[in-house]
Structures are given as C-alpha cells and as structure tokens.
C-alpha cells in the first residue's frame, strides 16, 4: 500500500483555465479615468539635449568642489597625524574614539554625515546578500560608463 508520504509535492496541482489572466479587466466597474495630470505650458519643448548635458556638467562641478574639500580635509588630517606621531608618541596616547571625535568636530570640520554626502546615495544601497540578477545587471549597465562621452 502506498503511503501518504509518497505524494510528489513538487507538482503544481492548482491550474487556471487557458488564457484566464488575459481576460481579466476592470471594465465591469466602468473604467475610471485616473485624473488629469498636467505639465507647465510648453514644458516638453524645454527638454532637449542641452538641458540634459548641462545638468550633468553642473553636478560634475559640485562633485569636484566637494572632492577638493574632502582632499583638503584628508591632507590636513595626515599632516596633523604625522605631527602627533613625531612629537607626542611617547607622551600622549589617544584612544580610537577620541581621535575620531577630534577629527570629526575640531580638526577637519566635517561630520560623518557630511562625509556621507560626498558619495552618491546609490553607492550605499548595494546589498549583495539580497541582490538579484536584474538589479546587478542594471547596476553594471548604468554605473560604469565613460564620462568622456558627455564632453564630445
């Protein structure tokens, strides 16, 4: 006699009539208009290649500006770090958190959140544990391109 445990549970026993999902509409509740979304007058005429490239150019300048600040901050930190290392090695010791606090609030003038702003939000959104093939493809397709194209 066959035991219940011999049932193959991998077979999908629930089926729908052929083309069932294709016939689903909500026409029977009278198609409701979704409201009228509008745009400012002549809006689409303002969307041209200059607007796209100009926007990107501005963002590049801002990034450069931030990069300059970041580099100055890092350079200052290195100089002071060297100074501390050479002159105070034997006399003063700091623990890690004291150094971080000092650099964050006194020396460099950047808080951790300001440093975070130096990077694009997207760079922090990659979670490799949950990433799927589509997300990965999208990230590869859209994140590693040749910026020089914009200037030509």
């Amino acid at each position: 006699m066959k035991s219940k445990n011999n049932l193959n549970l991998n077979i999908n026993r629930f089926k729908t009539p052929k083309g069932y999902f294709d016939k689903i509409t909500i026409d029977d509740i009278n198609k409701i208009e979704l409201g009228d979304f509008k745009v400012p007058e002549n809006y689409f005429e303002t969307i041209n290649i200059n607007l796209i490239t100009k926007t990107n150019y501005i963002s590049k300048i801002i990034n450069f500006k931030y990069s300059k600040h970041a580099l100055s901050g890092i350079a200052a930190a290195l100089i002071v770090g060297l100074f501390i290392n050479v002159f105070f090695t034997d006399t003063i010791t700091f623990n890690k958190s004291e150094i971080i606090d000092y650099m964050s609030y006194e020396l460099v003038g950047y808080s951790s959140s300001e440093y975070v702003e130096l990077f694009e939000v997207n760079e922090f959104e990659i979670n490799f544990d949950h990433i799927n093939d589509n997300d990965f493809d999208y990230f590869i397709e859209t994140s590693f391109s040749d910026d020089q194209n914009l200037n030509n």
Binding site: I52, N56, I140, E141, T142, S145, D146, N149, L150
Partner: peptide, 8 residues
C-alpha cells in the same frame, strides 16, 4: 546617455 555604450 552615459550607459548607451554598455547597452548590449
């Protein structure tokens, strides 16, 4: 615009 070269 940036990614068109990578479009497969």
């Amino acid at each position: 615009f940036k990614a068109i070269n990578g479009f497969k």
